[in-house]
Design a protein around this nucleic acid. Sequence first.
DNA 1: GCAGTCTTCGGAGTCATTCTCAATAACAAA
DNA 2: TTTGTTATTGAGAATGACTCCGAAGACTGC
Lengths: 151, 151
Amino acid sequence: MAAYTPSALKAELNERGWRMTPQRETMLKTFQNLPEGTHLSAEDLCDQLDKEGEPISLSTIYRNLKLMARMGILRELELAEGQKRYEINQPAPHHHHHLICVRCNKTIEFKNDSVLKVGAKTADRSGYHILDCQLLIHGICPTCQRSIVPI
Amino acid sequence: MAAYTPSALKAELNERGWRMTPQRETMLKTFQNLPEGTHLSAEDLCDQLDKEGEPISLSTIYRNLKLMARMGILRELELAEGQKRYEINQPAPHHHHHLICVRCNKTIEFKNDSVLKVGAKTADRSGYHILDCQLLIHGICPTCQRSIVPI
DNA sequence: GCAGTCTTCGGAGTCATTCTCAATAACAAA
DNA sequence: TTTGTTATTGAGAATGACTCCGAAGACTGC
């Protein structure tokens, strides 16, 4: 869970026999420049890069999102139904968790260091090299509790 | 996050204008009788019910899995890629979290009450009616750390 | 420059999940 | 108990997020 620079990414890729490419650097920079609380799906990212005049093929985006998530650079989130969303995986002061309404998908982000500590300790005890630690709370938001609309 | 009996389920369904059906009761009982640590996908459940001589249509299974998850009876888990898995949502002494290897999907369950408390407090502070609270840790297991196989 | 290999691209393919709709069966009221 | 209303089921078709494939492009080391 470290902050990545393009050259740190390149170094880690090379270490494993992989290569840095303009597409990978573009994706990294895009996620790093996103306002906090933004979660992009593969298609969102594709559209955004199109608009910015740096188009990347959708297959490449899918491939690299998964790669970067498995490297611990991105977090893969299942916030709403239907598609995965990604955000940059930031260390302690910015690291956060999610509280989600199962009816309207309203999402609240919150921070909690003690959860992080539990995560680190648990992973360590089993010999796992930790990549991400997220507390996921599902519930029904105040608005939906009042609404008559079922489920 | 309460333990459900068939009649409690029926009561809660009726309260919202919905109906108890043999299929829903069968699904509830099946999940309640599962050994701890078992997570079923929709297709797993369909196959198992077939073998037990109580077949339920796959569409009905999908429909009711989602319904029961949104009622807080089941937990929806994204442990491996590709399909969602479900388990009964049990209260405190049995409630647990998951530590998952992103490479081989090896999953370890662990318990932690302080995480539960953080979850309850956080939901409460935002006025959410809590349904589920899961700490999800992604990492690389000891075996995969030693292996040469990439990502 | 050349060989070998990793990557990208775009379209075709896959498969978990959802949708559709006619038939069925809970539930409430009489 | 009977009946009317309407939620639910089942089977197959449809959807769409995601993956795979083959050919062309781009690095890396020699």
